[in-house]
């Protein structure tokens, strides 16, 4: 099982631990990754729609030349690359605009896959649980999907937008307890940090508060922006609302890595802002 690996800008910078744990876990699970040659930024949440779709499509053209489907851990990149692919496949004006901008005649030949989808549906939970060396027995986690991993479902395709279960099932397959979590598909407000810090901290604060009230040991996420909000902004939320949270936020690949018995250095567990020491089992 081989893919063109699209890390995206965050995984080479502030989400370094997502990149490290992705590579470590894929190696054990037999998912072959070769980094997409000369990839460029997808436009994230900041570029206009035509720019985002065109920048994203350039990456898909490179993957097509490499003859590989694209594997993406970042949900923002996943959303943009998938939207570009869908727009091309639907045809119409967007397809013309994109192909003119990139100077290609791309037809949507490659598939864009989220790493969570590949692990849960291609590798499968049965194989995943067979690989578990250190069952996460007694560890309580809440699954946090956020937005772009599951919406819009016409684009992301692999999970139900109302009752998503890929993260839930994955947590259980590792031997951990998955707590029912009302905020699992609510927005963290990350995109509002520059326009309204107040709104964004409130949105993330609500998510963290419920997780804390449930008695979770950690929150499991699949998106670098969700992670930055829940992890990096956590201390700001604690002082703003005068509450104690102290809740580790793990990328799902870090959680899998713990269960596979991989080392903390390999998984970048020292790079999370909220200490993950309580969760380490080696």
């Amino acid at each position: 099982m081989n893919f063109a690996y699209y890390p995206g800008c965050y995984l080479h910078a502030s989400a370094r631990e997502y990149d490290m744990s992705t590579m470590a876990v894929c190696k054990v699970l037999g998912i072959g990754l070769s980094e997409l040659e000369d990839w460029n930024c997808c436009g994230a949440l900041e570029a206009s729609n035509p720019l985002t779709l065109s920048l994203s499509a350039r990456n898909l053209v490179i993957a097509k030349k490499e003859g590989l489907d694209v594997l993406v851990p970042c949900s923002i990149c996943f959303n943009n690359l998938s939207r570009a692919n869908s727009a091309i496949r639907e045809g119409g004006i967007a397809k013309t605009v994109i192909n003119e901008a990139i100077g290609e005649s791309y037809q949507g030949e490659v598939e864009v896959r989220h790493l969570l989808d590949v692990i849960v549906n291609d590798i499968g939970l049965e194989k995943l649980s067979k690989e578990v060396k250190v069952p996460l027995k007694g560890l309580k986690s809440v699954p946090y999907y956020g937005c772009l991993t599951i919406r819009p479902s016409k684009v992301s395709k692999f999970d139900d937008p109302d009752t998503p279960r890929s993260l839930d099932d994955m947590i259980k397959a590792l031997g951990a307890d998955c707590l029912p979590f009302k905020h699992k598909k609510d927005c963290c407000g990350g995109n509002l940090l520059m326009s309204s810090e107040e709104f964004s901290l409130k949105m993330t604060g609500d998510i963290l508060s419920e997780a804390k009230e449930l008695g979770a040991d950690c929150v499991t996420v699949a998106c670098p922006l969700c992670h930055a909000m829940l992890d990096y902004q956590q201390s700001k939320i604690e002082s703003k609302y005068d509450i104690a949270i102290d809740l580790p936020i793990l990328y799902f690949t870090q959680l899998i890595g713990l269960a596979l018995g991989l080392g903390e250095k390999e998984l970048g567990l020292d790079k999370n802002f909220v200490s993950t020491i309580k969760l380490r089992r080696e």
């Binding site: 800008c9 965050y10 502030s14 930024c41 570029a47 720019l51 326009s195």
Partner: peptide
Amino acid sequence: KKPIFDKAFTNSIRKYGRNFE
């Protein structure tokens, strides 16, 4: 202030092809 931040971001893409965070 959002469009100002967005501009800083897209400027980075235009200069480097990637976001220099």
